[in-house]
Design a protein around this nucleic acid. Structure first.
Lengths: 346, 346
DNA sequence: ACCGCACGATAAACCGCTTTACTAAAACGG
DNA sequence: CCGTTTTAGTAAAGCGGTTTATCGTGCGGT
């Protein structure tokens, strides 16, 4: 019942293990006749080299690891990750690589990293000083960071978060909104500051608002989920103090706001304008369709994977310029209503 | 620069490799003093056993493989997979397992399977006679099938597709729809028949329609994507031959229909009722919110993972009864309009 | 007839860890 | 005080491949 090994093939074909190995990895070193015979026997026996043995001896696993900063069930609730994986996946398939999801192992991403048999890591949203990255460093495994800060150690692929955020804020400001609230992303991992991404977006929002001379915005922390968006909406001040425009750092959060606002009896966008971030596919189908900042998530994955593969092949790469973000105006934003009119009740 | 190995730790601690190994895997076989010393040295050196070496020698990789029947970019465009991964992920984290995504390797799932270093496989939507499963068989790796047919070889976790489909069809019929079309899922892999899932749902729809004595439904093949849904809608007969009710086998397809129908000037649900399948989270936010058949996707993942882990530990498990599906009525369905009235144009 | 050289194939070391004997020393029982 | 367990630790044999260095052989050249 046990797996057919290289020795089985060798003896069945009447050659040495070396010959079998060469048949697969170095065919030109074998005579035509034996090559075919070995390959034939191997195929008949259904032989395939044991991945772990191969990995041990070649020091290559043919796998890239994707560091999941939180529990899989929370991270995969955000379609952002799916998009990213589509991009990463494209390159993986192109290069015959498998993809290992690496979530924290009993709470520790560091130990998970140590246990992962991969040739390279993609990290999502970790600050360059995260302990996890030190471990990767000490392992000598190449890595590419997505949504991080420029770091001397690893190349980073980012988008123009600040620019996108500013565009979103300016959009609301141009529509006459003067009372705006920001829904800021929580830290990726416990007891750390905002993620680099959140910081840049926050800066972008604030800069635009300040430049317009509007009131400093209210900021509320809201996770990346519909439920978090609903909670965030509910925690907003009510009545005439309620902001007329909301800047969410994630489409999922924005969807939650949409939903909570409407069940509270508000009309979107008439009573409340909301703009998201990401432009996930679902942003086009929400009710109303979501105005949001588009970032090229799939590209991000593609580019990061391409860079990682380069690094895995020993070539140096440097971080590309931040990818463009663009505001996509749909139907969740409109002119600010007259704040003196009574709003629909809650 | 090279990785710190067990020999390094051994010599640094003045013991044998065996002792170091015992320190981690068999602590009780070491004296208190040496145990602590070894552990200390190992920690200081940042030692972690090489995963491949460990896997080779223990014949365990601490990883489960998820067979992706198509390209990652197409499969992950369907939030269904994200949900499933959330379920699988919960159990993986609980049992300290990593998760390897295994898409076809140059077009062949079989070779991808051979190259995957995993302790077990989860398969999505493969028929029990798929060649891929034979390979798994020959490897002696345990597997659990999701959305397949009962098979003597592997346990299967399914939902009550037929029941759900019948409920959906009956819903439309009860609303007076007599002219209904079915959007059936395409085969999972080239040159194969419908997926087991598609077959069961089709049977459920047809049984209900037949029982109601309604006209045999038009069936159109439509992939699981918004674009496919849009195409499917466009391919429908126009004018008074256009069905008044649509049964989609996936929420994504249904969303595409929603969108295409509305841009064609139809009002949903007045001119066209559509019901999806899955009850993905996004079904609640579409415009209008989608009537759909709910299946417990996350549970499916959880249960499948639990079963696989049991099997990996040598215990036999048998397939559970199909999980319940329930119709969730939202706003994309309503009474059939009078077919004699002119419909809004296309 | 001899030398040198491709060519084809192989033996053996190695990758880094686990685990099965096996041994030396210490504890124990009578 | 001696034989018998226990305890603490080790040497060495795998696990299943890859790869370097080596070895026959048949062949062309002079």
């Amino acid at each position: 019942m046990s797996r057919v090994t290289i020795a089985d093939v060798a003896s069945a074909a009447g050659v040495s293990k070396t010959a079998v190995s060469f048949a697969f990895n170095n065919p030109e070193r074998l005579g035509q006749a034996t090559l075919e015979r070995v390959l034939g026997v191997a195929h008949d026996l259904g032989y395939a080299p044991h991945p772990a043995a191969r990995a041990l001896s070649t020091r290559r696993s043919g796998t890239i690891g994707v560091l999941i900063p939180q529990r899989l069930s929370t991270v995969f609730a955000n379609p952002f990750v799916s998009e990213l994986i589509q991009g990463l996946g494209e390159l993986c398939e192109e290069h015959d690589l498998a993809m290992l999801l690496v979530p924290p192992l009993d709470g520790s991403l560091e130990t998970a990293i140590r246990h992962a048999s991969v040739d390279g890591f993609i990290s999502l949203g970790l600050t360059p000083d995260d302990r996890a990255l030190e471990v990767i460093e000490s392992l000598g495994t190449p890595a590419v960071l997505i949504d991080s800060e420029d770091s001397s150690d690893h190349p980073v692929v980012n988008v123009d978060d600040a620019g996108g955020a500013a565009a979103a804020a300016n959009h609301l400001l141009a529509l006459g909104h003067r009372h705006v609230a920001i829904l800021v992303l929580p830290p990726a991992r416990a007891q750390m500051g905002y993620t680099p991404t959140a910081n840049r977006r926050l800066a972008g929002y604030n800069a635009a608002i300040e430049a317009a001379g509007a009131a400093p915005p209210l900021t509320v922390t809201a996770g990346i989920s519909v439920a978090a968006g609903m909670r965030a909406f509910d925690s907003l001040p009510n009545g005439r103090n309620r902001p007329t425009g909301l800047l969410a750092m994630s489409d999922m959060t924005a969807v939650g706001v949409l939903s909570a606002a409407q069940t509270a009896g508000l009309r979107v966008p008439i009573d409340l304008s909301v703009v998201g971030f990401d432009d996930l596919p679902l942003a086009a189908w929400t009710n109303p369709p979501l105005t949001t900042v588009r970032q090229p998530i799939v590209d991000k994955g593609r580019i990061a994977a391409r860079m990682l593969i380069e690094r895995m092949n020993g070539r140096a790469v440097d971080s590309p310029a931040p990818l463009k973000t663009t505001l996509v105006v749909r139907a969740s934003t409109s002119e600010a209503g007259n704040p003196d009119l009574p709003n629909a009740g809650r």
